[in-house]
Design a protein around this nucleic acid. Structure first.
Ligand SMILES: NC(=O)c1ccc[n+]([C@@H]2O[C@H](COP(=O)([O-])OP(=O)(O)OC[C@H]3O[C@@H](n4cnc5c(N)ncnc54)[C@H](O)[C@@H]3O)[C@@H](O)[C@H]2O)c1
Ligand SMILES: NC(=O)c1ccc[n+]([C@@H]2O[C@H](COP(=O)([O-])OP(=O)(O)OC[C@H]3O[C@@H](n4cnc5c(N)ncnc54)[C@H](O)[C@@H]3O)[C@@H](O)[C@H]2O)c1
Lengths: 219, 219
DNA sequence: AAGAGTTTGTGAACGCGAGAACAAAACGAG
DNA sequence: CTCGTTTTGTTCTCGCGTTCACAAACTCTT
């Protein structure tokens, strides 16, 4: 039992744990849908694809939500994790760059069901501005400031070509966005306090290729 | 200098380093395109967005390709990293599930330029089979075995709904695919020797949401 | 009520990765 | 040739994350 530094919920959750909480959340949702009411750390760990000791340690950072000898109440734990992550209410999100990838993202229903709401699709190309994707119309990139201010947007997604990514990020940061998910293969530089996460397809494939090559060599 | 365990090139590169090599490769490509001939570890580290000590340590696992007092020959280093990763020649890749995301992936030109060639697009839905995406026609999922055998495919991409993902993975593994890039939000179980990497959009957003919530709380 | 059987929560050991710091090597000036 | 400057390659230390292992806590049976 460590002393709480500041107020009630001021726990310091390790980054590695934060990255796994969404995985647990998804596994719990699957269990709920299957009608499961209670599960052991072993069960949940299997569903999430992790070691059960790791799972228990991760959950222990949130508090003590299990019952020894019994396990975890699936629905209760799911709510607790959702609350900790902050997805009990919806986060408004803007997507910039409505090309191939932007279209796919806009059409993706998994956002909505997991705590996010796409409030705007922006593109610099005027030819795109007629279009309506998944019920949201594509607007001019210059509408960014207005939309962010009106809707209180804190999270932005970049799906533009790499060359435009830094400029888009700068505009986002300037108008108050503090979390960016970047799909462009570019290293973004942003001020302190702004979080950037990068999703890079080619890198993932190249990592696979490296291991594939090693397999081929040793065979 | 540690003794080589087996043959000449049998170095054991840490996983964290492997994950960064593609980033360095991309940064070097950018430098080449800018006409740069030589760069220091400091320069390259800045372009890749990492610490220069980390960069040097990473590169040292590949060998000693720099010149003290001078730096690295950009083109030479780029080739060495590409060779180490295994992207000096093209890897054939199949994509399964040609929906929203599958279309975007098929249309993505960044594959080709980074060592990968999409040799087949497969979908279970017969209505998709007329279509041609980026010059490749969509074929029946049942053609998987044939294509993998004919083209020597080792890497598969899964872009089907989550429910179908495990079944698709099983079929892939059965016909000899040993590396899988999975976009479906599902935990895949595969035999030893098969690598799976997962790209999960919602998880990335949820991680951002967590930090966003903390920022809001502390403010 | 007590004991047997489960399962959680956590202390402790261990291994890997990050970064600082420095010695070795190359190069150029004089 | 020698010295100063630059930059690499590597050693060392520290901190984080993973995993084991077990005591504490709960349930159920008798
Ligand atoms: N398509 C994929 O599957 C895929 C996969 C991995 C990475 N990526 C990356 O994602 C990004 C988008 O890929 P894509 O295939 O959708 O490209 P795309 O060319 O189809 O779409 C890019 C869109 O961004 C818009 N745009 C350009 N500059 C802009 C600006 N300054 N402000 C606002 N909008 C702007 C363009 O008008 C276009 O609609 C690229 O960086 C690409 O490398 C794509
Ligand atoms: N669209 C996105 O931006 C996005 C983002 C993140 C994750 N994802 C995930 O990627 C996956 C695909 O998303 P999507 O939006 O393209 O869905 P989608 O429904 O548009 O496409 C799925 C495709 O898979 C095909 N399919 C279904 N079962 C199959 C099977 N057994 N074998 C072969 N093909 C099969 C369907 O016919 C369809 O064409 C989903 O799991 C989704 O959760 C999508």
């Amino acid at each position: 039992m460590t002393a709480r530094t500041t107020s009630e919920t001021a726990r310091d959750i390790p980054e590695a744990t934060v990255a796994r909480l969404p995985v647990y959340l998804r596994a719990l949702t699957t269990l709920v849908e299957a009608g499961t009411q209670t599960c052991s750390s072993e069960d949940l760990a299997a569903a999430a694809g992790v070691n059960s000791a790791k799972l228990r340690k991760d959950l222990s950072y949130l508090g003590s939500y299990g019952t020894r000898g019994v396990g975890y109440d699936v629905d209760y734990l799911r709510y607790q994790i959702a609350r900790e992550i902050g997805v009990t209410q919806d986060w408004p999100v803007v997507i910039v760059g409505i090309g191939n990838l932007g279209h796919a993202l806009a059409n993706y229903s998994g956002f909505r069901s997991r705590g996010f709401r796409v409030v705007a699709l922006l593109d610099a190309d005027p030819e795109r501005h007629d279009e309506v994707v998944a019920g949201v119309d594509v607007r001019a990139f210059d509408d960014l400031e207005q939309i962010v201010a009106d809707q209180g947007v804190a999270i932005g997604v970049i799906a533009t070509p790499a060359l435009a990514a830094q400029a888009v990020a700068d505009r986002m940061v300037a108008c108050g966005i503090t979390s960016i998910l970047n799909f462009a293969p570019a290293v973004l530089s942003v001020p302190d306090g702004v979080d950037v996460r990068k999703v890079d397809l080619s890198i993932e494939l190249q990592i696979l290729a490296y291991h594939e090559q090693r397999k081929a060599q040793s065979a």
